[in-house]
């Protein structure tokens, strides 16, 4: 038997919110992946929209490179509003 490929499932819980990854499942094609995702992940009105993506299509960053990937952001405090000192008289900005 040939294996059914793996799909990643993303659900939008309500309009106004982004789709969020909620799990994965096997299905023979995209239509079946959507139907299975409906049955597995939205039995209690958890969603109003579903995306399915073949897992093989996802390129992920490697946690071993987390240092060079994410650490450069650590010493850039000037990107945050709290970095800037303002006079006390200034009430709103």
């Amino acid at each position: 038997m040939k294996n059914w490929p793996l799909w990643e499932v993303f659900i939008r819980s309500k309009n106004g919110l982004e789709h969020r990854h909620c799990g994965s499942l096997h299905a023979s094609d995209a239509t079946m992946a959507l139907e299975n995702a409906r049955d597995v992940y939205t039995r209690r009105m958890e969603g109003v929209s579903i995306w399915v993506v073949p897992s093989a299509q996802i390129t992920a960053s490697n946690p071993e490179n987390n240092g060079e990937t994410f650490e450069p952001a650590i010493d850039k405090a000037y990107r945050h509003p709290t970095f800037y000192e303002l006079p006390d008289e200034l009430k709103h900005m």
Binding site: M1, K2, W4, S28, D29, M32
Partner: peptide, 16 residues
């Protein structure tokens, strides 16, 4: 269930 799983794959290949 084997034939159902096989049929689903055959159908997916045909559609593709």
């Amino acid at each position: 269930g084997t034939w159902v799983r096989d049929a689903a794959v055959a159908y997916a290949e045909k559609q593709a």
